[in-house]
Structures are given as C-alpha cells and as structure tokens.
C-alpha cells in the first residue's frame, strides 16, 4: 500500500532544517524509514506564510494569500511511503518528531 503522510503542526516551534537534522528523534525516524525501505518521496514545506491558493470560479482565476483552509494546524511536510498496511503506516507516523507536538495525517494513495 502507498500512503502520503501529511506532517502538520501549528508552526509555533518551526525548527530549522539544521535543527531537524540534529534532532535524535528525527534521525531515528530517518533510519527507521531507511531500514523499512518505505520512503518514495519526502519534502519539507516552507511555512504557511509563503503559501498561495488558486481557485477558478466562473472562468475567473482567484489568487489569494495563505493556505487553502484556515485551521489550527498546517501541513509542513509531505512524505510518500510504501509499506505493508495501515498498522505499519501508523508505526512510521508515530515515529515522526512532529507527532509529539503536531500531528501526522495518513492518507492512502488512490491508485
């Protein structure tokens, strides 16, 4: 099964990439992903202040500043994994450092 992990939080912590790389929890997560051979794609997103949303209504393109929906938590990273089942995806998601203060949404890929 393929799943996308949406790594989310409210951006109050916002560690830099260097801080993330130095975080032992994040290192353990990376090592776990490698051991499982699960990661297909992984990207970190810039904070939501840099987001732009596009909608087309009645043929008119509407561009707005900010994310698609105003919520408490924002997607800060996207990881595509391939693993056996939802239980393995849960195990992987639970190991991500953001799971401790934000949350990780698991979405099965529609194939």
């Amino acid at each position: 099964m393929k799943y996308v992990l949406l790594i989310s939080d409210d951006e109050t912590r916002s560690p830099s990439n260097e801080e993330m790389d130095a975080d032992p929890v994040h290192q353990a997560w990376e090592a776990d992903l490698k051991r499982r051979g699960a990661e297909r794609l992984g990207v970190r997103l810039r904070p939501v202040a840099s987001a732009t949303t596009v909608r087309v209504r009645d043929g008119e393109t509407l561009v707005s500043d900010g994310p698609f929906a105003e919520t408490k938590d924002f997607v800060g990273g996207v990881v595509l994994i391939e693993c056996a089942d939802l239980d393995e995806a849960i195990a992987i998601a639970a190991g991500h450092s953001y799971a401790r203060w934000g949350g990780v949404e698991i979405r099965p890929v529609w194939e």
Binding site: D85, L86, A89, P108
Partner: peptide, 14 residues
C-alpha cells in the same frame, strides 16, 4: 479496504 487495515491479530507490542 481503502486504508489497508490489516486482517490479523495484532503483534504483541500492539
């Protein structure tokens, strides 16, 4: 079916 919930008895740690 869609989320791939496994059909099994969970392992000891779960």
């Amino acid at each position: 079916a869609d989320a791939g919930i496994p059909y099994r008895v969970p392992p000891a740690e779960l």
